[in-house]
Design a protein around this nucleic acid. Sequence first.
DNA 1: GCTGCTTGTGAGTGTTCAATCACTTACATG
DNA 2: CATGTAAGTGATTGAACACTCACAAGCAGC
Lengths: 191, 191
Amino acid sequence: MTAPPLPRSTADARRATVVARAVTVFARHGYWATPVADVAAAAKISPAYVFRLFDGKLGLFLAALEHCFTRILATLDESADRSAGEAPAVVLERMGDAYAQLIADRDLLLLQVHALSAADVPEIAEALRGGYARVVTLAKERSGAPDPAVQQFIALGQLCHLIVAAGLQGLPAGWAQLLTAGMAHPDRGGG
Amino acid sequence: MTAPPLPRSTADARRATVVARAVTVFARHGYWATPVADVAAAAKISPAYVFRLFDGKLGLFLAALEHCFTRILATLDESADRSAGEAPAVVLERMGDAYAQLIADRDLLLLQVHALSAADVPEIAEALRGGYARVVTLAKERSGAPDPAVQQFIALGQLCHLIVAAGLQGLPAGWAQLLTAGMAHPDRGGG
DNA sequence: GCTGCTTGTGAGTGTTCAATCACTTACATG
DNA sequence: CATGTAAGTGATTGAACACTCACAAGCAGC
């Protein structure tokens, strides 16, 4: 009753698919509460092979985090492209909108929340700082906005994390609507 | 070689001290990566007794989180007292300063980060929402500031969490200084 | 003293999970 | 077909940990 043997692939290709699945799986329950076997199952390979492809659970998580930041940077960069030539404040606002759109994805934002919580592991803290270094630098350089505006941009990003992780979007309470005001709505699908 | 028996105390008093220690211990490594035995050791009682005083590990964490929010609300309330009669924006800014001072404490901010990461546990998400409901409501009512200002206040609070958890304060890099600009400095203590 | 209640613990139990290893299976090349 | 190499797995191990329970030790009232 084992699954039919998958078509073989190179280790590199397999690693790439596992990383992509790992982002989603780790995003659900975080680093410590996610067994490697869950990622393996999502990637449809055996746990043993995951350990062969990555340097332990930590290596797997770090790869997922790296992938996460790569995708976020791509999103922001793309957004900056679309508002080229606009005033700094406008560019930054558009980037903020693009980031808020990721609330629908959930995965990329949640993984950052989990990584922050696991930042007592030095390697994770290091990867996190590396990621934010790139995000802040990109936001500043591509918008040309002054430091305080960039700081506020990042702060709003962190607020997005709170909204997603605590499940605030769509809550009727006034305090929740106050926090989510101006944020992209998640499952407004077909509109 | 067992520790000399502690002076007896009532269960309620013991619970209170355990909760206070639990805030610190959970703040270090988070919910999943912290064994109950670590909290017990910090409180100098046996793990078995912790399970008797609280409803499982989850009950212990929830009590710690509640305690955390109580202390934060007290801090904010106190700050509002000190700036009574000032303009809304000023009151809010003073509250922000008071919150940023907690960066030195670390514990209260870190516990929120960990709670957010563990918010896939329904009870933790619920407690978190309850806490933020009170924080937002207090900030709005005591400052009288408009919604967007309160939203920004909370966003800056989340930025504080990032700074503490990722260890950004004191980093020489430009992007880090951009993020920490205006935040209270932690251990500028005795030299 | 004795009795009964509360505080507190030592010694377990069962489970979960990271990591390893010996092994098998597919494919490329001669 | 033979043979080497890389992909992939089942079985297992050892440790950590949440939680339990039978029991001990202190303190009240008699």
